[in-house]
């Protein structure tokens, strides 16, 4: 304010200073905003509605009969551009000839939420959810293991399904079961979904 503004007469400057004109202008803006509906959300008291296509934390899904969908094919790992997935697979001792993941890790700190893994998955075992609150003081918690991933999937199953629909990966359970792989063919035991 000390610098002399250009193009103002001295008189005008003195008047502005005496009448606090600048403060008045500022107050006008403040007061006018007090009566406008705020655009920010009062997070965490208030939460936003998230669109179905939103890319949030990843979860692993089960079929409706409780069987793990994931066949441990590792295509998600191959597709992941930031290399944050690790799958260890084996033959399922309980159901010979079926392949499953014995271990599954997603390092969510590295994940760039591109959704490629979900696209790569041939059985729609992976999906993104609307979950985004997993801040922690312990970074190790951010390497999601198989148990955690299935917990996420279970908790957010409806969102996950909506994600898959939104991304054109699944239409509805009955129809998708037509093209969803049951591996290998000679392994029995996957019951088609009841009409949902």
């Amino acid at each position: 304010m000390t610098a002399k503004s250009e193009g103002k007469s001295l008189l005008r400057e003195v008047w502005d200073a005496l009448s606090f004109s600048e403060i008045r202008t500022a107050m006008r803006v403040v007061l006018s905003h007090m009566f406008v509906k705020p655009v920010t959300f009062q997070y965490p008291r208030e939460k936003r509605t998230i669109p179905d296509a939103h890319r949030g934390a990843l979860g692993l899904l089960r079929y409706d009969d409780g069987a793990e969908r994931c066949v441990g094919c590792d295509l998600c790992e191959a597709a992941c551009p930031s290399r944050c997935i690790k799958v260890v697979s084996a033959e399922n001792p309980e159901r010979p000839l079926s392949r499953y993941a014995t271990e599954f890790y997603i390092d969510i700190t590295k994940c760039v939420f591109c959704g490629y893994c979900v696209e790569a998955c041939p059985v729609n075992a992976l999906a993104m959810t609307k979950m985004y609150e997993y801040a922690t003081a312990d970074k190790r918690q951010l390497i999601f293991d198989k148990k955690r991933l299935y917990e996420v999937g279970e908790k957010h199953i409806e969102d996950a399904k909506r994600y898959l629909y939104a991304h054109n990966q699944e239409k509805n359970d009955a129809e998708s079961f037509q093209y969803r792989y049951k591996f290998p063919h000679q392994v029995a035991g996957l019951t088609p979904p009841q009409d949902s």
Partner: peptide, 11 residues
Amino acid sequence: HPLDCPVCDAD
């Protein structure tokens, strides 16, 4: 062909 590449060891 069964096209079960995802679980096939030759994949």
